[in-house]
Design a protein around this nucleic acid. Sequence first.
DNA 1: TATCAATATGACAGCGCTATCATACGACCA
DNA 2: TGGTCGTATGATAGCGCTGTCATATTGATA
Lengths: 334, 334
Amino acid sequence: MASTIKDVSAIAGVSMKTVSRVLNKERYVSEKTRLRVERAVAELNFRPSVAARILAGKRSYQIALIYDNHSPHYIHQIQTGVWARCIEEGVRLLAQPSDAASPFLAREIGGLIDQTQVDGVILSSPVTDAPGALEELEQRGIPYVRISPGTDYDRSSSVSMDDVQAADDMTSHLIALGHTRIGFVIGHPNHTASDQRLFGYRRALDKAGLTFEPKYVRPGAFDFSSGEAAGDVLLDLAQPPTAIFASNDDMAAGVLTVAHRRGMAVPRDLSVVGFDDTALASQLWPPLTTVRQPTRDLAYAAAGLLFDAADEIVHRRLPHELVLRASTSAPKRA
Amino acid sequence: MASTIKDVSAIAGVSMKTVSRVLNKERYVSEKTRLRVERAVAELNFRPSVAARILAGKRSYQIALIYDNHSPHYIHQIQTGVWARCIEEGVRLLAQPSDAASPFLAREIGGLIDQTQVDGVILSSPVTDAPGALEELEQRGIPYVRISPGTDYDRSSSVSMDDVQAADDMTSHLIALGHTRIGFVIGHPNHTASDQRLFGYRRALDKAGLTFEPKYVRPGAFDFSSGEAAGDVLLDLAQPPTAIFASNDDMAAGVLTVAHRRGMAVPRDLSVVGFDDTALASQLWPPLTTVRQPTRDLAYAAAGLLFDAADEIVHRRLPHELVLRASTSAPKRA
DNA sequence: TATCAATATGACAGCGCTATCATACGACCA
DNA sequence: TGGTCGTATGATAGCGCTGTCATATTGATA
């Protein structure tokens, strides 16, 4: 069946340990023997057993990605990014869905570590902010990196974008177009990014000397139907907004649907913008002006931080970008 | 740190082997000792090391899911379904992206098995039809189940839906509405489902006594932009179709965008339908009439077949459903 | 030439489990 | 009463690697 390190060592005419040295790129192996071993490995198409490595060694060559997010696009990009970096490193990725609000989260993470002996963990938002989870990881001394954490910023390395600035940029863009009544749909209350985007919206209004009107701000949950609900309320106002900024693309799609349903033309009668730049944004009609969140790159960078794991804590901030499409224009003259 | 089976056996006052028996639900353990062991396990919060189990035993308590698909929604549903079933079984899932067209696919799968000793493999379309992959699995005697295979139907257990019938149903629905010029956008050539959906479309035309017009059929690739391209060609025809059936929702979104861009009202000027019923379908304007493909359930069932693995080959076929939304109506009177 | 560090290799234990085989204890039948 | 079976438990080996320590072998230096 599958060959073992013993088979390789027999063919190469060296000890098992020397084969192990070659596999792990340890020092103190002569060029000559290294080549002999590598030839034997290739000949047998030998792959070391992960299980045996874990059991015998300190490293497991596995990391876990823990996520709780209901946007398939977001998860997909996170997975893809982390996975790409793992491939480069020759490390296996265990993708672990979970429930950030579950009281058993810490226990589940502990179980995962005991069972798999992963070398490190990547937490994506909002699991990043589950206090039990962080404690569990620290108690076990497992290195971890967080993607877009909202709290305990100094507790671990992390990667993130500047949600406040991005929301500020987007709001300022709408103001620059001439909008003064700008609706806002907040994200899911579990995600810290929600607060930050709201804050950026307010900051931009302040800077422009516009007064913040609570009636123009509606709660949401990052999903399509909460966008619809918020859109309906906003457009029912006596003085409806001329632009609506939804905290993510899914909710923006909901707003767009409401506008269509009411026979409003976008962007002529209403400008709509989102956040994330998921595939959805460019597949809607009209294509959505949005903020490009570098999700894949954030995930890639997070894995990088984990592997480079110097002991110091590092925060990497990746740039966002305004993506201007066809869902925005100057407001209609009243 | 993490406790071992030895710690448990000490506390419970039994041998390691007896603890092992309890963990594996083997026969021949008295009720009394079983309870004692279970109490000790709970007390220590003990989780057996997967690595040690793999190394010592025959089973690895891991299965792999191999996919190559660029629709995040589809992957997400597949992953979710398989994962749900794995949880029930207490089995770990390794999700493995891959490239179905790669000449190294078989070798990669072989490597995965050697490294991880997975107990079984789930292949999702189109990896299901990569001949090298199947050979590799059979040669190693690893049980595998395929989700929506297109070829070698008798070679393994599988789960699938009836793509031909579904496309037939959808086409018949359009015909029943009064459409006679029905455009069709084919799926990605790598996926067998593409052929089957095309076949179903033709069968429905035949049954209704409509002649098949090659000019109404355009190639596609299951992505948004190929839908746009096909839509443009179809709507440029001297006698354009009054309805367009795209082989998946992403492409239907592309067609919808083309229609909007031309100032056509959907469904008044053009009916558009898709296939899959991804989240996208209900987030578009107008909401898309489509075929609900039971992706999550297919994945769940596939994992079930793998675990039940009687030696016989089983094919499970899950029902589809026409989801009628607002993107279809009778054609405009000429 | 003797000494030492740097380099190169191997012998062997043991990681935490499961498989195999041995053993012990009733219960039951002839 | 002894033999046999089904049930319940333990002792021990070993899965395929890596870590530790011991042991060459080299080249440079005193």
